[in-house]
Design a protein around this nucleic acid. Structure first.
Lengths: 369, 369
DNA sequence: TCCGCTGCTGAATCTGATA
DNA sequence: TTATCAGATTCAGCAGCGG
């Protein structure tokens, strides 16, 4: 594909609309390499037989819709591989996919993902804080669903906002198990008759975490099983573009009304904690040029090693000369070393990491734009 | 099979011993329909490439054993289907199987189980209370493993001690997610050199829950990937018969010594299974994800300071960005600050501490362990 | 004996910008 | 495309030691 083709394709993308039809056919009509993230909540192939009743004999409203009926595993597999293949064609090279499912279908989906060339990054457990109990006492309470996060291929440079998710989790890195309530109450959409509009509406909180963690503002998010449009609603809130595909007219109607009512968060609120790597690079030599460190001055490490600063911003250790990183690594016998945190200078008897000086320079750069 | 055959087969069973050899060949030599429960911890096919270092530069001791190396998915699939087929032949008609794995292999195992005619009853998530973190900040902490529980076939009358598991869970129906620590400390078996005897020893608490829930005293439990014999040790404690199969002599030696030391119904060993209950930690970000607070919304303090909420659960104050605690401390010039009581939101003209929202979330989590 | 501090470790598919 | 090198990155639990 030429750059021109891709630009043409991108221009043709039906952003922020719901396409009516079968997801494989609709995806086939979209341009390759045009989507940043796909979130998919495919039919679970539940294979329910008769009714299920609660201990008080009331009937459980199960998923018995036509779209969840398949002939058998082989038919479900063909369906799965067909939509996963089209989805992969649509993804940009560094794009990624999330798929949610239960034990009825997730193993087949996961194996198909691997067979189609996707590269699994994590499986994530959505642990429901308020699941439906097991009424018969014949099994464990089915209290979770599984999500799979995969990049388009091995080695792809997928988007992962590590610091943002860490911030969401109060400073501790986000784990693969997420405790979130199921979608109930005011969030649960109702149809005209007051019945739930969709049997398996996903909670906003789930999509919020996925989109904050794995997309950037302005990214294109595709949901091939749009349902009542949680993906679109959250994408809009977060300032991402979205495309939905949905066969059932009744779901599309509910989704359109819903998304129209969503307000985008304001720009400042969408800013997210950024990684250090995104900050401007400051060469160590600048600390010397600016006179923050004197040539000839001795730097020390917490492990008791020392080295002397030279005018060109290199260090001289016992036997070694080189960058702050190289000398640190050599003195420790380590394969690598972050010299910024390893080396310290001494002022008025106090030992200070040289990284503090780098932060001063960065702060100045901020102020001067 | 006649009743006579089955009795002959049962009589020939090598109970409470470890068979040396490849599990497919060893299972093929055992009589059909003779086993009540199988617990299997097959190789995960991790496909690790280079080595991994912690931020302090120490090297992670990875699973690089020969038994975890496969040519590719197709080779792993053949292996999986071969042992699952033999395992199914050995099961009594009402027998069941548990298999444990990670995202590297569990999807292939689950699909194979279904294809071979097993009937999945639950997938169970082992949520590790103390997993290894993600050192490079490139993915989510891999904090769980998945177990699949399946009966030999659809409609089988498998053993499930509903009341026993409910009692283990302090009177509440057992859920499909189990919080248990990984195997460390005194429980972790060491070799003569003081190194861990097996790279992936499973905790007693995990097997305890499986065997209490899915076997009866006197049942025969088979583990085709016996390793250092946690399955055998727990079976002996609980008065079940066991059969192990293990290729590696070093593992068999450790397992034999270990199981010889186990006393039936060792009370102290059973203590391990009681989960510790602490007040669950609720990250501030969850209030945002759940829509209790809106990104862009302003929080205020009793001292007249204010800050705005961002989508990743951080706050922006006058000059500071960070957690609710960090921003509160900075604005007050204090070394620390409890953001939960310091910050308030405004609804209908009323100022409410954000801690009220945390209490709401905790109330939802109550009773769901 | 208790407390705090340091150090070590666990089934892990673990970098990215620039030349 | 490949080589080079700067430099970013961790949580819970247990053992051992010193005061």
């Amino acid at each position: 594909m030429t750059k021109m083709d891709r630009m043409k394709g991108a221009a043709a993308l039906p952003l922020n609309t719901i396409l009516a039809g079968d997801c494989v056919a609709e995806m086939a009509a979209l341009p390759a390499g045009s989507v940043d993230l796909i979130f998919a909540d495919p039919p679970y192939n539940l294979q329910l037989k008769g009714d299920l009743r609660r201990p008080d004999n009331s009937r459980v409203d199960a998923v018995d819709d036509a779209w969840d009926r398949f002939e058998g595993f082989s038919s479900y597999d063909s369906f799965t591989r067909a939509w996963l293949r089209e989805a992969r064609r649509l993804l940009k090279p560094d794009g990624a996919i999330w798929v949610i499912g239960s034990y009825h279908n997730i193993f087949r989906v996961g194996a198909a993902l691997q067979d189609e060339g996707y590269w699994i990054l994590n499986d994530v457990v959505w642990r429901k804080s308020n699941p439906m109990p097991n009424f018969r006492g014949k099994r464990l309470t089915n209290a979770h669903e599984t999500l799979i996060w995969a990049s388009r291929s091995e080695g792809a440079r997928y988007t992962f906002n590590y610091e943002a998710l860490k911030a969401l989790n109060e400073g501790i890195q986000m784990r693969s198990d997420w405790v979130l309530p199921i979608c109930t109450g005011g969030e649960r959409l109702k149809d005209a008759a007051g019945e739930k509009a969709h049997p398996t509406q996903k909670p906003i909180s789930l999509l919020h975490r996925v989109l904050v963690g794995c997309t950037k503002p302005g990214d294109v998010v595709l949901d091939p099983f749009f349902g009542t449009g949680t993906t679109g609603a959250v994408a809009k809130m977060l300032g991402r573009d979205w495309i939905g595909i949905e066969r059932e007219e009744s779901y599309r109607t509910v989704a359109e009304t819903r998304i129209a009512q969503v307000r985008k968060f304001d720009k400042a609120a969408l800013e997210v904690t950024r990684p250090k790597r995104a900050e401007p690079r400051v060469p160590f030599g600048q600390l010397v040029e600016r006179g923050m460190l004197r040539p000839g001055e001795t730097l020390v490490s917490a492990t008791g090693k020392s080295a002397r600063v030279r005018a060109d911003g290199t260090l001289v250790g016992l036997d070694v000369t080189g960058s702050i990183h190289q000398v640190g690594a050599a003195l420790e016998g380590a394969p690598s070393c972050n010299g910024w945190t390893y080396w310290h200078f001494v002022r008025d008897g106090v030992t200070v990491p040289i990284d503090v000086l780098r932060q001063q320079i960065r702060a100045e750069m901020q102020g001067s734009g």
